[in-house]
Design a protein around this nucleic acid. Structure first.
Lengths: 354, 354
DNA sequence: GAGGCTTTTGCATGCGCATGCAACAGTAAA
DNA sequence: TTTACTGTTGCATGCGCATGCAAAAGCCTC
């Protein structure tokens, strides 16, 4: 009876058509919003489809329409809760418009990943990169075929790549101001990888602002956005003779490592001996174990903007690449001491508005 | 010149064929390992493909072959680092065989998610569920069309669903033994959701084993596998008059919440006043901020087994559902006091071998 | 150089769906 | 009743690739 072992193939529109006594195209139209079908026949068709538990074959639909409703997401550092959050937000928000994510985990330096070049084989409607950057080849390919690329949290010199990010410049400056206001005098910065432009922007802004306040030196080390890397970087910092009393970390995740090392390995007090600030405001930053002061970078908003860009690029393919910034704020917790003024409580959170 | 604005369509096999001066089928064969093509023509074709930067259209290939090389992954609780790790492992291991993940984030009770029913529209080769369970309808659909389903870390009563899990029973019993050996006398269990069978298995095994040792009562609360939920559950526990001195949490992530509440909110000492043990051994458990004793459940191995099952089911579709267990061990850290004996140090980690 | 083989190639078709076009039915207006 | 539409339907085709089959081209052997 059955075609082959277990695998009788899934029902197709033709099967439904036969049952409903109509043509295959009628069935197709019944499932195409806005197509021309009489209400009666549509009902008849839907009933037949139901009885066969028919599901449209999206691959075939993609072939016919040239639109797959699949968005490729390339990501590194999934162990960093911030990026896990971004993935979750993107997935949920895309789902609202019936789209789904094809996941590519890559190295932090995505430009070096040949696997990623093959992403276009899947006929994805767009490409989102988070915590990675696109190679030149990939970018050209995408432009040629009209596939929008958006990078979240990584800048790009390449034209044709849109970007979404938090307030890097402003965050770094505010943190510098904040440290100064709280009376700190010796500063350090734990950056991501040396190649990460975002990290460098923060570093420049941080150092620049401190210079204005009369502090010429910032101790800079790199944690490569990993926990172990940041821990090692922190050790380097703390072993120096005139060690910092205020550390700005380029991500919360690295700040957690710094906290671990400062408190447990070196037995120093936070914030008495050393103040630590991160960026992102991941949920863990609010947990008692870390209780980290941080400049927020809302994942949901980043995801939303990225999707908006994609949609606008798909709607009008000629469109130029866009750059968007999402606002955040400095959220005060126990890893820093409070400056004498400027502390407000909003929505049950302490923030700093100098 | 150009077809439409920016979007000149991607080159196809026919385009390559024209350039190489062969037929489309020759091109197809050149890209099909094991197909019959002369070495010369293959080279000629590859060169032509290169010059056009041709990429095969995987949608079309899927249509023709009935195999998409896409695996659907449904997951909830992505904020739990354990599951982030599972995603990462699955992604990386699947990539080695040229397959990719189509991501579905769902609620913990996936069976209630109608969106997930549509997963088969994508013609995925298999379906992996982690931290969720499949509905009956979905299961039937999959069986009908021969798509294997594997659940990671969730049991299933439905036939036809394969499962992969850690040592739930054994973990719970070992932890019970361990608590007793360390001299604890009042026990509590913080479970996941009431519907989670895995959580219940652990609870039963934990309570059962304690009973054997003469302890009849275990305080049970539920944290729904969320941080906030576990924190609330812990508060409930600690407010009781004769509160526990040893808590077993059904996941590390919930254990972190418990630690936060115990230490900061109630100012109790860990492990002096209360010992806490989790399950998973996520990287964070080893971080100084938590330093959690836990029964490990290696994500890489879980992913590997899941993929093995999928492969075997794809290879021989008639195959029955499989159930596999991945071994772990009790890793001792600072959230528990050490029993007088049985403590070994292996690979720089303390484990308990009674 | 002819017959028998193997290897290589092209032709034709199908996968499941969308869609332009023509045929058709139904309705209202003349 | 005829005409002019509007709204529905089916037909035919194409999306890009894989593959069975037959034709063609080599290759060997005698």
């Amino acid at each position: 009876m059955s075609r082959k072992k277990t695998g009788r193939r899934a029902p197709t529109e033709s099967d439904v058509a036969k049952v409903a006594g109509v043509s295959q195209s009628a069935v197709s139209r019944a499932f195409t919003p806005g197509a021309s079908v009489a209400e009666d026949t549509r009902k008849k068709i839907l009933k037949a489809a139901q009885s066969l538990s028919y599901q449209p074959n999206l691959m075939a639909r993609s072939m016919a329409t040239g639109r797959s409703n699949i968005i490729a997401l390339a990501i590194s550092s999934l162990e960093n809760p911030f990026y896990a959050q971004v993935v979750k937000e993107l997935s949920e928000q895309l789902r609202e418009t019936g789209r789904h994510i094809l996941l590519f985990t890559t190295s932090p330096d995505g430009a070096a990943d040949p696997e990623l070049e093959r992403v276009l084989s899947y006929q994805v409607d767009a490409l989102i990169l988070t915590a990675t950057t696109a190679s030149l080849e990939l970018t050209l390919q995408c432009q040629k075929t009209g596939v929008p690329i958006v990078q979240i949290n990584r800048e790009s010199k390449l034209p044709g790549i849109s970007t979404v990010r938090g307030e890097n410049q402003r965050a770094a400056e505010r943190i510098a101001d904040f440290f100064v206001a709280a009376g700190h005098t010796r500063f350090a910065f734990i950056g991501g990888s040396k190649g990460s432009n975002i990290s460098e922007i923060r570093q420049q802004a941080f150092a620049g602002r401190l210079k204005l306040a009369g502090f010429d030196h910032v101790d800079v080390v790199h944690g490569n956005y990993t926990f172990e890397g940041a821990a090692a970087a922190t050790r380097t910092l703390l072993e120096k003779p005139d060690r910092a009393d205020a550390i700005f970390c380029a991500s919360d995740y690295m700040a957690f490592a710094a906290l671990d090392v400062v408190k447990r390995e070196f037995g120093l007090g936070v914030p008495e001996d050393i103040a630590i600030v991160g960026v992102d405001d991941v949920p863990e930053a609010g947990h008692a174990a870390y209780d980290l002061t941080t400049y927020s970078q809302p994942a949901a908003a980043l995801a939303r903007e990225a999707i908006k860009i994609i949609d606008s690029q798909i709607a009008s393919p000629g469109r130029r690449a866009q750059r968007r910034e999402v606002r955040g704020q400095l959220i005060l917790r126990g890893s820093t001491r409070l400056p004498p003024e400027g502390v407000l409580t909003i929505d049950n959170k302490k923030v700093w508005q100098s």
